[in-house]
């Protein structure tokens, strides 16, 4: 029953995303063959909605994996240096290979994100922070170092505007022909599903994982690679979307606990639903203009995050 209601909510949101926007589209006109409306529908609305669904799911799952890999509920790609090191990679590419194809640019950004996240994991092992809140703080500081290097170079070479506009989370530029790279995250989500049991075990810590005959470092490395790659793809295709990776997995964990096999699908779809809602708001609040979705996510996300922190029970 719950599942049916949930599916209905998702369908309504998808419907809303398909038919909300600057130029009004009606189902009747589409069926009757209004070619202009069909064009808008096929080239922007459908790609945009698919991107929203995929990005929301991917970012939530990335957060979920990171939280298990670090055994810390406050860690997500945004607070582990992943996003910032990917950004540095993007600036480097802009500087040295300005005409490189998208796939190549994505690959370099992924390499930076991967290395940055591994460095973060080493850093927290090395510092062995006992206090759980120290770890995301270290991550944020660590990310800021990369971020400032990126900003420095961008500033030197007049790329600030270019970088800022590119990396501002925004779905209004998603169009047929320029968003398809986002589909590459789907196989990553599949791998995550297949490794759900292993990720839960890793969440119990290194000693128990090794005792059960599982190679802790190897699983951690696979997890970090998935997170770095998926996160980079989303960053390049739609930009930076804050908070999603922390609030969605935690909301689900509070109600449905941490056995990943049981919560993976729910975490993914909740992420999609949340991002769909935010994007519909972003499109309608100053219609016919739009605000970037990252602004809406930032406002709603920070409120939800605060309410999570203020709960009586710890996360």
């Amino acid at each position: 029953m719950k599942k049916i209601v949930w599916a209905l909510i998702l369908i309504v949101l998808i419907w809303g995303s398909l038919f909300a926007g600057a130029s009004p589209i009606s189902l009747k006109q589409l069926v009757n063959g209004n070619s202009q409306q069909q064009l808008i529908f096929l080239t922007t609305r459908i790609p945009r909605t698919i991107s929203l669904i995929i990005a929301g799911a991917t970012l939530s799952i990335c957060g979920l994996i990171m939280q298990h890999l670090t055994q810390n509920k406050f860690v997500s790609p945004g607070s582990a240096g992943t996003t910032d090191s990917a950004r540095l990679g993007i600036v480097i590419v802009m500087l040295f290979f300005p005409n490189a194809p998208l796939l190549f640019r994505s690959f370099i950004a992924f390499l930076f994100a991967f290395m940055g996240t591994i460095l973060f994991i080493y850093l927290i092992n090395f510092l062995a922070a006992k206090n759980k809140l120290m770890i995301p703080l270290i991550g944020v500081m660590f990310g800021n170092i990369f971020g400032s290097i990126a900003t420095f170079f961008a500033y030197q070479f007049n790329l600030i505007q270019n970088m800022t506009s590119w990396l501002q989370g925004n779905f209004s530029t998603v169009m047929k022909g320029n968003y398809e790279l986002i589909y590459l995250t789907l196989p990553l989500l599949l791998i995550t599903y297949l490794l759900a049991y292993q990720f839960t075990i890793v969440g119990m810590g290194e000693d128990i994982t090794k005792n059960l005959g599982l190679n802790y470092q190897f699983i951690q490395l696979i997890g970090l690679a998935i997170v770095a790659l998926a996160n980079t793809l989303i960053l390049i295709m739609v930009g930076n979307i804050p908070f999603l990776g922390i609030i969605i997995p935690n909301l689900i964990s509070i109600h449905y606990r941490d056995y990943i096999k049981n919560t993976l699908l729910l975490t993914a779809t909740t992420g999609s639903a949340f991002l769909l809602i935010c994007d519909i708001i972003a499109r309608s609040i100053i219609a016919p203009y739009e605000v970037p979705v990252s602004v809406v996510v930032g406002i709603l996300g920070s409120l939800i995050f605060l309410s999570l922190l203020l709960r009586k029970e710890p996360l």
């Binding site: 055994q71 049991y197 119990m204 000693d207 599982l214 941490d258 056995y259």
Partner: peptide
């Protein structure tokens, strides 16, 4: 061979049954 260390603590929310089932992972 298996080892149970002292103070193996983590903060995962899983049930007793799910925890014990992990013992069958090998």
């Amino acid at each position: 061979l298996s080892l149970l260390k002292q103070a193996s603590s983590f903060e995962l929310k899983i049930t007793v049954k799910e925890l014990v089932e992990f013992g069958r992972f090998p």
